[in-house]
Design a binder for these strands. Structure first.
Lengths: 157, 157
DNA sequence: AAACAGTAACTGACGCGTCAGTAACCTGGC
DNA sequence: GCCAGGTTACTGACGCGTCAGTTACTGTTT
């Protein structure tokens, strides 16, 4: 790695840690929700009837099932989500549902959260910077997904 | 926020979460160190004699004193760091020191960690993409630091 | 000297995310 | 039918990071 690459890598870590912290803090102050809670509520709010299977929800937001299960337990404790009776044929499946309180909490959080993202992120960058950043991120995402999908190089015969 | 800004914001979160996870996993597999441990050891390794004051160390790596204190407790438990007798005039000050084991652990971790950062980050991007990314990150960092320094807008008289 | 604000170091509580499990269920081949 | 291998959901342990404290010391003000 060159000096410039290293500096940029370090800057990436510093910036994202800052943004995570500050936007997370705003979300908590504005709506008493964590980023993780907001993410799950957002997905359930999109879904028809506000219900979803854990596995499908986890896939949609890019989490593993363990992470989601822990978050669902915490959300259930807060009363924002509840388990619903599953009518599915698959006996393993369960069904989670937004409560009214959960739906309300998400609705009240959405606006302030977008405003916070604008304040810390979008307000800082020109259109051109956003375009360039988007390009780099897409490249990194493709590269990373590819590497993650083939963790151990297995030379085909 | 425009659609493009929002997408880029979401991508930034997704990419950085991916990189954090994968590089952290590499560091653990290669050297049995977490990112947080590596960060502290790196700073102590820079310092003359491998010692530092907690407050100075925290400032240098951009942490608050609580975060560092927790990390130092865990590092001390692992035997990578120890408290040293402080010869300072200020009775509040303490002094932390790298142990031999800590120094060795850092030395063994450095190479693989840089290689991991190259693999997940630097290998993906062209020189031009790195330049553009660096520009956006510097802008975000300036913007964020400025906002963080003046959290409540106080109009001067 | 006493009171004060400020700083250095630390702690407990708590939510988060990863890992290594476990239990229940489904689905294929035999 | 039955078993092997995969899937779904969940859990306990543990390190991390934030917040709201506490304690001990320092410099300043009166």
């Amino acid at each position: 790695m060159t000096e410039r690459q290293l500096r940029t890598w370090e800057n990436l870590q510093e910036v994202t840690e800052l943004l995570r912290r500050e936007v997370g803090r705003d979300l908590w102050n504005d709506a008493k929700l964590s980023e993780a809670e907001f993410t799950v509520l957002a997905h359930l709010s999109m879904a028809a009837k506000g219900t979803a299977r854990p596995s499908e929800c986890a896939r949609a937001i890019g989490w593993d099932s363990s992470r989601l299960a822990h978050q669902l337990r915490r959300l259930e404790k807060r009363g924002l989500v509840e388990k619903a009776a599953s009518e599915a044929t698959d006996g393993r499946a369960s069904l989670i549902a937004l409560t009214d309180e959960g739906r309300t909490a998400y609705r009240r959080a959405l606006g302030p959260h977008l405003r916070s993202a604008q304040k810390w992120f979008a307000d800082a960058l020109s259109d051109e910077q956003v375009d360039n950043l988007a390009d780099a991120l897409e490249t990194l995402l493709r590269h990373g997904s590819q590497l993650a999908a083939a963790p151990t190089a297995e030379p085909r015969a």
